[in-house]
Design a protein around this nucleic acid. Sequence first.
DNA 1: ACGTTCACG
DNA 2: ACGTACGTGAACGTC
Length: 877
Amino acid sequence: MPKMVILDGNSLANRAFYALPLLTTSDGRPTNVLQGFLTMLFRLEQEQHPDYWVVAFDKTKATIRIEQYAGYKAQRKETPEGLRPQFDFLKEILAELDVPMLELAGYEADDLIAAVTKQAEAQGMEVQVYTGDRDALQLISPKTHIYLTKKGISEVECYDEHALWERYQLRPLQIIDLKGLMGDTSDNIPGVPGIGEKTALKLLWEYETVEGVLANAEKVSGKKLQSNLKEYADQARLSKTLATMLTEVPLPFSLENFIYRRPQASKVLPALNKYDLRNVARIWQERYARDGEAKKDIPEVALEQWPVRELSEEGWLAQIEQWRTSKVPLTLACRYEGTGLQGGHWLEWGIAVSGETFKLPREEGDPRVVEAWLGLLESEEVPKILADTKMTALLLGNENKTLKGVAFDLSLASYLIQSSRTKFAPLDLVKEYVPALDAFDSVTDEAAALAQVAPKYQAEIEALGLGDLLHKIEEPLSFVLVQMERQGIGIDIQQLQHFGEGISTTLKQLEQEIYALAETSFNINSPKQLGTILFEKLGLAAAKKTKTGYSTDAETLEELRSAHPIIEKILDYRQLNKLMSTYVNGLLAQEKDGRIHTTFQQTVTATGRLSSTEPNLQNIPIRLEQGRQLRKVFHPTEPGYLLLSADFSQIELRILAHYSQDPLLCESFALGQDVHTRTAAEVFGVSLEAVTSGMRRSAKAVNFGLVYGLTEFGLSRDLGIPRKESKFYIEQYFKRYSGVKQYLENVVAQAKQEGQVRTLLNRLRRIPELYHANRVQRQLGERIAMNTPVQGTAADIMKIAMIQVAEGIKSYQAAVLLQVHDELLLQVAPEDLWQVAHILKDTMENAFPLSVPMTVDCKVGPNWYDLKSYLPKVKKE
DNA sequence: ACGTTCACG
DNA sequence: ACGTACGTGAACGTC
């Protein structure tokens, strides 16, 4: 049954005005009604999911009732000063929210509500009326429920026939009689003098209606009451008439005008911000985040069943030929066994095109048909719409076929629209527009569904300006990642095992020493058991706590280093155990034919970076020498080849310089200075020559922090200095680098306005945290707003570089093996080293020119540990 | 399934 | 008074 929700605008606004303290915008406009009304509106929207909704308002002209009774509402006070303007503000915001409003000259909101209710009931709808006015209880019916505001405004109480009976022992229409007898001072309905709610109820319980009461006036107890009923009989009848909500209103339009449309974030947030309605914006944003971002203003798609066309072998050949020449986009679904790199292979294809589907199974298929089909998949000319380009390309690659002609990748599109999404399976992609869908019945069903939602994704990509990012960066990048994953990186298993044996020996020793010092054996890997030993048995002072108990992380233990000899052993144990379990054992488990093939995830991070799994080759140790040794086991897959690494120098700070145009930061890069040294000179007010290593270290931490959204706490912790000192550094920094300060403030302010930020290449990240009820979360949102454009732009630039590098080195004996955010690792034949290194450096430095120069440092060597600088930086004139 | 810890940029 | 630097993935223990 469709659901119609009707709101009594005037009544609710009044309620809100009196229920809430008088809040104002910074320039003094009152907003408490807006806050109260909208809070309630959003709550009911979320809880009730109306199919139709409308807010009714009084029209401030003479109403029919004044013709009936000159005194009607005469006693009513002037609308209070603070309330009146809020009606206009409210209507303005409701318009932005696409909430239909209804007002009609000569009628009160009450009457409009009654008329809409009756009409909606007649059309078989369920009706909910939200009001603070008990008069509306007269509308209750099996189909209509009234929601009365409780104490505040956002709390409501639902009345149906049963609840009404519980409360008053009256039937809905008797509410009119109740008012006829007792009157209503606020509307100046007189009623009968001496009759309040108590007496009126008693009379109605006995005699049902005003007419019944008047007819039996002699029988009622109480002389004064009897005489009043006689004297004011006409007034009682008139009062009853005045209290009756009119249902015969000539509504100038149909209920279709009240169809619910999901408010659009792009209109809602600016409208709320205009009135400083931060709390309301927060509620909206939370709801919007919970519901799933992309659903916001997207209509659901009604999936059609597309018929499956059966073809003979000759028919298939003819059909494939027809697709080859017609070049209509084919939407593909693929069922397969195994996974991309583990020799997985396709089982059947679902093909959807122009309202029809086709199923091509590998098994019964005529080999000629399969060959022809694979030829089509390899054709650049035939456009394909796919759910997962990378997996498809890997599967085809397993039989030496090269996927070409990808016109639209739905997973990547969805990721660009909602970078926070976690599920990109075909069913998830379709469910975004067809929430009720549970499963696909067949591969043709899946292809048809994908084909029907694809235009929605395409439209959304266009609307958000993400087309170039999708087609020029993410889609081409998929193919580069496929090459890299297939190539893998060489790993020296024997060396790794040897490395592991050394660690094992040390670990066993440390284990025994720890047990001896603790005078008991326990599981050192259990933070819980370790905490008990350290802080209870050994009585060490617990500094931090976690949710579940004592904190035993390295930072905490470091503080205790001098307190007990066991601490140092534990820290060593932890470090070695990490190397052993995650790296030695982890990598050994992943090795195949002397190589490691990672999987690069292209739709995981919120910022646009890649991630690497099974194994993660983006977090191989480097900072500590002991772990760094591990890099010795990584080498080229081809004998005699060299590893060539290239990393962007200070890419994030350069992007910050570009964004902020801060003169000092830009100059520093333009002159090719050491940026940390320059920062130290500025912050400490000394010459470049006078910068000490300590000063540089502090400045470096500040520079790092900047990119993360600098905090006093973070900096003080990072440098191990008091908050006061870190505060001083930050102040000094922003004094000198005021352009950076200005930029960071601007990006946060803009993010709060728009609820999102973008990178230089237009990548989008929505930031619901900015509107979270929790302050800590909101501050996180601000740091995200500062960090994402910088980190995300770096990711964009690296992706462009990867595509160009892969293309640029094609004719050389070289391959890209890994990407580690700001580093590319290649292997190259010695004879091609010089040329490939030049191409690499040149391509990366010019992938996306900024207003400051980009510098790439190259290194070369036999393995990932022994790398020496190559192509030393050329001083620019 | 979740929390803690720690490896990387 | 609180809880904090941004972005990830893996191993392990605990529930």
